[in-house]
Every structure is written in C-alpha cells, then in structure tokens.
Computed example of a mutant assay.
Amino acid sequence: MTGEQLVLACGVHSLGFALFHAAFWKLFDWKYELRKVALPTRAITQILNLRLIYVFSGIAALCFLFPADMAGTRLGRALLLFMALFWVGRTIEQCVFLRVNHPLVHALTALFVLGAVLFALPVFG
C-alpha cells in the first residue's frame, strides 16, 4: 500500500469511529442510563462524545481530501503521528479502565491497535 492509500484507510477508520460514537445514545441507552448519574457527569459524557465525533469526522475529512499532503508533508505526518499516539493511548486506557473479558471489548481493542498501526505506517513506513 502506498502512503496515500494508507491515509485513505485512516480516513475510513476515523469515519467508522465517528459513526460508532454517533450511535452511543442508542447503543448504550443513554437516554435512560445517563439519568442514573449526576447532571455534570451526564453533561460531560455527552459533550466529550460529541467532541470525539467532531475530531474523528475532521480527521476523516482531512484524510479523504488531502491524502498526499497527509502522507507527504511534515505537518501531515505530524498529525498522523498524533493520531497514532491517540490510538496507542486509547488502547492502554482500554486495558486499565475496561477490564472485561468479552468478545466485543476485545474486538474494540483490536480496532484501537489497528488505528495505531494505520496512522503510524505512513509516518514510519
């Protein structure tokens, strides 16, 4: 795969996570479940999720619209490295905060590792 193709794959990965996060309200029944926590926790949870949707959508757009720049410029590679480190951190946090032996949790962890690898490959590959 070329650097530009890898960047496009990064865009697909980011778009997938934007869509996944957009579904959190239904997937996790937040209308009911978030009523169980205090208002600040309820608000922060939803605000952080909306900001993640924004970030993942923005990264996807950059990857789709500027694949050559993302793979071929210092700024683009810096952004790719930033996202690779984001996914490394997310993988570590998954292991620290969500110690659940469930196939879906393991699948998500694998997708986080995939993100780290996908975003790192155009930088170091």
Rank of each mutant, 00 (worst) to 15 (best):
M1K: 08
T2E: 01
T2R: 06
T2K: 10
T2F: 00
E4D: 00
Q5A: 15
Q5G: 13
V12P: 01
H13N: 03
S14K: 01
G16T: 00
L19P: 00
F20V: 09
H21I: 09
A22V: 13
A23C: 09
A23H: 02
W25R: 06
F28E: 04
F28L: 10
D29M: 12
L34A: 13
L39G: 08
L39N: 10
T41L: 11
T41H: 13
T41W: 10
R42K: 14
I44E: 12
I44L: 15
Q46L: 11
I47W: 04
I47P: 00
N49Q: 03
R51G: 05
L52E: 12
I53S: 06
Y54Q: 13
V55Y: 13
V55L: 15
S57L: 10
S57R: 09
I59M: 11
A61F: 15
A61L: 15
L62T: 00
C63F: 08
L65Q: 07
L65T: 10
L65M: 10
F66W: 08
D69E: 14
A71Q: 01
L75Y: 08
R77P: 06
L79Q: 00
L80P: 12
L81R: 03
F82D: 05
M83W: 15
M83F: 15
A84F: 10
L85A: 14
L85F: 09
L85S: 09
L85M: 13
F86Y: 10
F86T: 04
F86L: 07
V88N: 05
V88R: 06
G89Y: 05
T91P: 02
Q94K: 06
C95E: 15
C95F: 04
C95G: 10
V96Y: 08
F97K: 02
L98I: 08
R99D: 14
R99H: 08
H106I: 11
A107M: 13
A107R: 12
A110F: 05
L114N: 11
G115Q: 08
G115A: 05
A116K: 08
F119I: 04
L121P: 01
L121G: 02
P122V: 15
F124N: 03
G125R: 15
G125I: 10
